[in-house]
Design a protein around this nucleic acid. Structure first.
Lengths: 166, 166
DNA sequence: CTCGGTGCAAAGCTTTTGCATCCGC
DNA sequence: GCGGATGCAAAAGCTTTGCACCGAG
């Protein structure tokens, strides 16, 4: 899996800056985990990330993976999702933009979409309740046609990262 | 906690009908759990429901609570939420209307809101991806900035620096 | 009477914690 | 060298499962 060099450098800079600001140590494990995440595409859970690193003979523990994920989420390099019942799903934050999710209730595949109009709802909520919104999570659970389900990822993948209003 | 008689009768009818349709038994435990849920207000988790019934000296097991909650969710009498990391939160479906949630990131307070404009986003998603939406989940995570919030004033500076639209 | 449902406890699974060791600073 | 970070394993916390008994149909 090739790693985009420009993205990798930018992300490394952000992570280093974050660790310095928080006076945390720049350990090789932390950067190895960050690199592994940014060499992946799509969503992943802790176990698959841990297994991937083990398969590459990298000596790392689950505890460190959990710890580092917390840091990466805290500095906005990784986003945490709670699609299912128990396990947390993660996703790198760059270079993808703000988006929400459409999950097929039949095949569990995830489509990403974006609707800027959601910002109107956010502003309304902030004004009505006097809250300051940090982030949001919008997920549609939907069923697709069978033929559509079979074509999943072939035709729609092209649009998955785009805003529907582009 | 007084129980609204009209709601109770309606909900009982729906649950009985569902159990008959699925050829499941109408056990006293199932109706006791349904009644306990509908005598509550707001959100709850499995453990607090279980403790409540134990405190009323009702002989019930966690396994039955979990099993019955699955049934109640399946027949739309109860809604399942996944706000936090691990535990599922539940909420009775009637008589409240469709709504979404605003959760304080400092004190975990839950506010319900409704914005019909979200339906525009749903229709757009359905048309764009040819999906049939079953249900959705929208949650804003926000700071309530109230004096009674346990972290009042601590993180406001940090929050105000962030923007939702990067 | 049947066999689905229940209570109880043990097991399962994800995540957190304790502790000795390691290593960034 | 100090104290934070790590690996490992044990523990914690929510949920599911196995099993013997109970009771709805």
């Amino acid at each position: 899996m090739a790693l985009n060099q420009a993205v990798y450098e930018e992300v490394t800079k952000i992570f280093k800056s974050y660790l310095e600001r928080k006076q945390l140590r720049k350990t090789p494990e932390r950067f190895a985990i960050m690199e592994e995440i940014y060499s992946r595409t799509g969503h992943f859970d802790v176990e698959s990330l841990y297994i991937s690193m083990k398969n590459k003979n990298y000596r790392v523990s689950r505890a460190t993976v959990y710890n580092t994920l917390d840091l990466l989420v805290d500095c906005d390099l990784v986003t945490r999702h709670q699609f299912g019942r128990n396990i947390s799903q993660f996703e790198k934050s760059y270079p993808s933009r703000q988006h929400d999710h459409l999950i097929c209730t039949d095949c569990n595949k995830v489509v990403e979409f974006c609707d800027p109009r959601l910002y109107n709802t956010q502003k309304m909520v902030e004004e009505t309740y006097q809250f300051k919104v940090i982030h949001h999570s919008l997920t549609f659970f939907a069923s697709c046609q069978k033929e559509n389900c079979e074509n999943f990822g072939k035709n729609l993948a092209v649009y998955s990262q785009r805003s529907v209003h582009d």
